[in-house]
Simulated assay, not measured.
Amino acid sequence: MYAVVLTFAATVWSAGLEAGSAGPPPFSDYAATARYVVHNNDWGSLASISTHPPFNGKPFTNVFSVSDGPVGNGTGVLYFFVSPLDVTVQDLAVNPNASLSMSEVESGYCTSEKWDAEDPRCAKIVLSGKIVTVPQHETDFAKTALFSRHPIMAEWAKIQTHKFYFAKMEIENVFVLDFFGGGNIVSPEDYYNANV
């Protein structure tokens, strides 16, 4: 009986979203959900493997401002504006593998539904891959993507001693949890090709 009620509730909830509300994609469209969460977040928690005592060799998380493009022009590519003085950036110079966690809670949708951030219906995603320097031909877009959403970064760029530069994540794995029943893996190809 519980499964029937849960299935009915999920169908009604999904149908309401598909009917054109301003909310997220249907929970069963994991790739689109991941893209939605990425584009509607200005920051995430980036985990690296620390090279600094007392965390040496252990996961270490740090908050980073991010952008996948100007508002309304999301690409799914996660851009960062970073300084080699940052401890996480120093970790990434040794081991570029990282994971970035983001939550739908920032969009305000979960709050409007009275869902706690830990509620499975409040989508959470984890993207993992390598953090690399943005190639020269891509820096103009990275700059527009980041500075349009984080205007203060234009001031950071003037601090020559910090040697800020553009980086991005080469996404290898995408994990999405947006409903009851456990998380789902999305391939990078499906993530980038999502209809959003």
Rank of each mutant, 00 (worst) to 15 (best):
P84I: 06
N40Q: 13
V77I: 14
N56A: 05
N95C: 07
T88L: 01
V71F: 06
L78V: 15
T88V: 04
P84V: 01
S48K: 03
K58R: 13
F64I: 12
D68V: 08
S65L: 14
D91H: 09
D86Q: 11
P70G: 14
F60A: 08
N62G: 08
G74H: 06
N56G: 13
G76W: 13
P53F: 01
V87M: 00
N95S: 12
A93V: 05
T51V: 00
V77M: 12
D42C: 11
L85V: 14
V71M: 13
F60R: 05
F81I: 12
N95A: 11
S50Y: 02
G69K: 15
V63R: 03
V37M: 05
S83M: 06
G74P: 10
N62F: 00
V82C: 14
P70Q: 12
F81A: 12
T75C: 13
G69E: 10
W43Y: 13
N56F: 01
L78K: 08
L92V: 02
G72P: 11
G44L: 13
G57R: 01
N62C: 03
H39S: 15
P54V: 00
G76I: 04
D42W: 12
T75S: 04
P96T: 13
W43K: 15
P59S: 05
V77D: 15
S50V: 00
N41E: 13
Y79P: 11
G69W: 10
V38N: 14
H52S: 09
L92I: 07
I49P: 07
T88W: 02
T51W: 00
V71W: 08
A93S: 04
N73S: 14
G69A: 09
N40R: 07
S45E: 14
N40C: 09
A47C: 13
F55Q: 15
T51E: 00
A93K: 14
S50W: 01
K58T: 00
Q90S: 15
I49N: 11
S48L: 12
V82F: 12
G57M: 04
